[in-house]
Design a protein around this nucleic acid. Structure first.
Length: 696
DNA sequence: AACTACTGCCC
DNA sequence: GTTATGC
DNA sequence: GCATAACGGGCAGTAGTT
């Protein structure tokens, strides 16, 4: 089969389709954004027979000052909120790009729920935020594109291959679902979906496990799809994918929720105060959720007590993960000095491991949470067992912010992230552990019954230093300096890198130095070698394959397969895919240019992993400069195969496009020898278990 | 029992 | 994780 | 500056298949 024809046809089809339904980029083709309420209207009238639906939905468009919550309800107040109400609201939002308007529509929808069926607000918010449960509860759908494709084929009586090729063309399974709507009319119309029912089904899907669980999950999805009408299939699928793609995500949901609470108050807020109250409410809601990310707690409290009293009822709770504070990237020491001009600050090593937030409760129990609030407690029983050794006896409760790093206690050296990631993740037993870890503590958020979030970093850090003792290779404080001289910082950065760290985190100490949960704060700056221009690994590589874009990248390539050139064997060896660093214009240019160089099948002198699933192959014509943070041994890529590892190639960590090298031809690309040399130059600390005879 | 594709979650 | 983009 | 949505490598765990 010829890849060219398939690829070409799909690409053209996508362009012709004008990329309706996914926003973010002014479409290549000039099809104007046509309001699509017209289409929805007919479908709704024909199918749902819910008279008043369209009028009701029209109400949602109104400004919040003119909006009448009950007029937007087309169901009886005793009934559960229909799913189509939310789906239509989301569809309305998909046609908007302004965040204010999006927030307003969602706010109106929430107000209607509050005014009619308050008990459904929780489900409606969960669906709006595209979540199934709090992150730390570990509820997983276990449904990906492959499973959805099967379910769609099943529900609409289509062939999987057909769905797949339509997926390539439309770039979104939600749109495929929309296009698949069953033509046959059902004899008995299924009962309308409700938000509660949909959320409940998602939770059932998550619970399904073991033999034939995939069939059971698929059956549940099918049932939802069959019962769905109008735009419901599209949004069901997008919810299952956890990709809403309509410019709405959790932060906006929180804002809308806060505003809806204010606007639902009795007596109504005076117009003169309204704007301030709304802004304040949004801040309160975001802050509350950042320290207590559990809708089951926040929403009832919001409904019962109102937004103003929310902080009194919903506060940080030991055992519940706080959103970790994040750092802003900076390009160099001078930018850091610039941003922290007159402030006192400190520099800490940025360790290359995984972020951990450790909760130690009064009863001695422990929870360990990841950067994304996943409960990792069962992954680190060794950490829990060692707590007692580095915690001072007078410490009865704490929340520690730290980095867990793979560590070789023989050589006292930090091991690479790739080693850490090989640790088992579930139900780990201490005696089975092969990779030891060291904790690097850098912040203390809670101590002996008292939250420290509001304290400045110097206070929190003092508390940290006073509460724990270092145990070499088990628990150490993040290496820090308070020097504020450019040269000294530069040197400290080099020290960090020499000690197997990624770079530095620079933090304000005394002023503007509170812990800002869940924020990428300006008070923490990260400084990595590869952020700096003219420093860090950069390679000149050849695009040899393309992958059809999804979402806002439909109609262009979303990613490319890159290769280096092996001079000895005269072959191109895949080294990584690349999908970031392109401006929209650049991505279009490169897509268009490479499309002219499509070849029907890969050249015999291309080396690559078969599992990559390349959509389209290109002749070697261009050279792109790519920046990366590190080089790694790869299970799929083939660069420098046989040079560093007998059976494996080399790949790049965090690859991104810098620019197109118009001055270079493909055979002048970075050579496999150079790639191998760059890999060796990293001076990686090898784990003893991996260093010896692996393959003999 | 070994392999593979898929999924979720680290970075 | 990095990056680009619209508001 | 914030929020969102494109996209990266690579690992363990799981379900299904050979």
């Amino acid at each position: 089969m010829s890849d060219r024809t398939v690829a070409d046809v799909l690409m053209k089809a996508a362009r012709a389709a004008g990329k309706a339904g996914v926003k973010g980029r002014p479409p290549l083709s000039s099809t104007a954004k046509s309001p699509k309420k017209d289409q929805g209207k007919e479908l709704a009238l024909a199918e749902t027979k819910q008279l008043g639906l369209n009028d009701a939905m029209e109400e949602l468009r109104k400004k919040q000052s003119e909006f009448d919550p009950k007029r937007a309800a087309f169901w009886k107040e005793t009934e559960q909120v229909p799913f189509i109400f939310l789906a239509r609201a989301l569809d309305m939002i998909s046609n908007e790009s302004g965040r204010l308007v999006i927030t307003e529509i969602l706010c109106n929808a929430f107000r209607t729920v509050i005014a009619t069926k308050r008990s459904d607000l929780l489900a409606v918010v969960y669906l709006s935020a595209n979540k199934v449960a709090p992150a730390h509860e570990g509820v997983e759908l276990g449904i990906g594109d492959a499973a959805i494709i099967k379910a769609l084929a099943d529900a609409f009586g289509r062939k999987e291959d057909q769905i797949k090729s339509q997926m390539k063309a439309l770039g979104d399974l939600g749109l495929v679902a929309k296009a698949s709507r069953s033509t046959q009319r059902l004899m008995i119309k299924p009962t309308a979906l409700t938000c509660v029912k949909v959320l409940e089904t998602f939770r059932f899907i998550a619970k399904e496990s073991g033999k034939e669980s995939q069939d059971k999950k698929r059956a549940r999805i099918k049932a939802l799809l069959v019962a769905a009408t109008d735009c419901e299939p599209q949004y069901l699928v997008r919810l299952l994918q956890a990709k809403m793609r309509i410019g709405l995500a959790e932060q906006t949901v929180l804002a809308a929720l806060a505003q809806a609470a204010v606007l639902s108050e009795h007596p109504p807020v005076l117009p003169a105060q309204l704007e301030d109250r709304l802004d304040e409410a949004v801040q309160i809601m975001k802050r509350t959720y950042s320290v207590l990310p559990i809708y089951e707690r926040v929403i009832p409290a919001l409904l019962d007590e109102g937004i103003s009293k929310l902080p009194n009822v919903c506060d940080f709770t030991l055992g519940v993960p706080i959103g970790p504070m994040l750092a802003k990237p900076t390009k160099g020491v001078s930018e850091v000095l610039d941003k922290f001009q007159d402030l006192v600050f400190t520099c800490e090593y940025k360790y290359d491991g995984e972020r951990a937030q450790i909760h130690y409760l009064e009863d001695g129990s422990v929870e360990i949470y990841s950067r994304n609030a996943e409960r990792n407690t069962a992954k680190f029983p060794d950490v829990i067992a060692s707590l007692i050794k580095f915690k001072k006896p007078e410490v009865t409760s704490f929340v520690l912010d730290c980095e867990i790093v793979a560590y070789d206690r023989e050589t006292n050296k930090i091991l690479p992230f790739q080693v850490l990631s090989t640790r088992s993740r579930k139900g780990v037993i201490i005696s089975d552990i092969k990779i030891q870890v060291c904790l690097y503590g850098f912040d203390l958020l809670y101590l002996n019954g008292k939250a420290l979030l509001q304290e400045q970093l110097n206070i929190r850090r003092e508390a940290l230093y006073n509460s724990f003792v270092e145990v070499s290779g088990v628990f150490q404080f993040a290496t820090a300096t308070t020097s504020n001289e450019l040269d000294a910082i530069q040197e400290f950065l080099q020290d960090a890198i020499n000690h197997s760290c990624e770079g530095l985190i620079v933090k304000t100490l005394e002023k503007d130095a509170t812990y800002e949960p869940a924020k990428r704060s300006n008070n923490w700056l990260k400084l990595k070698k590869d952020y700096m221009d003219s420093i860090g690994d950069s390679l000149d590589l050849v695009p040899i394959g393309g992958f059809h874009g999804r979402g806002k990248r439909v109609g262009v390539y979303g990613a490319f397969l890159l290769a280096c050139y092996d001079e000895d064997a005269d072959e191109y060896q895949s080294i990584c895919k690349i999908g970031t660093g392109f401006s929209d214009a650049m991505l279009e240019e490169r897509s268009e240019s490479l499309q002219k160089n499509i070849i029907p099948k890969p050249k015999p002198y291309y080396r690559y992993g078969e599992t990559l699933g390349v959509d389209v192959w290109f002749d070697t014509v261009e050279v792109w400069e790519i920046k990366a943070a590190d080089l790694s041994i790869s299970p799929v890529h083939r660069a420098a195969n046989g040079i560093v590892d007998p059976n494996k190639g080399i790949s790049l960590r965090f690859p991104r496009l810098l620019r197109v090298r118009q001055d270079k031809s493909p055979d002048q690309a970075t050579s496999s020898q150079q790639v191998a040399e760059m890999y060796r130059a990293q001076h990686i600390n090898h784990h003893p278990a991996n260093g010896n005879n692996e393959e003999d």
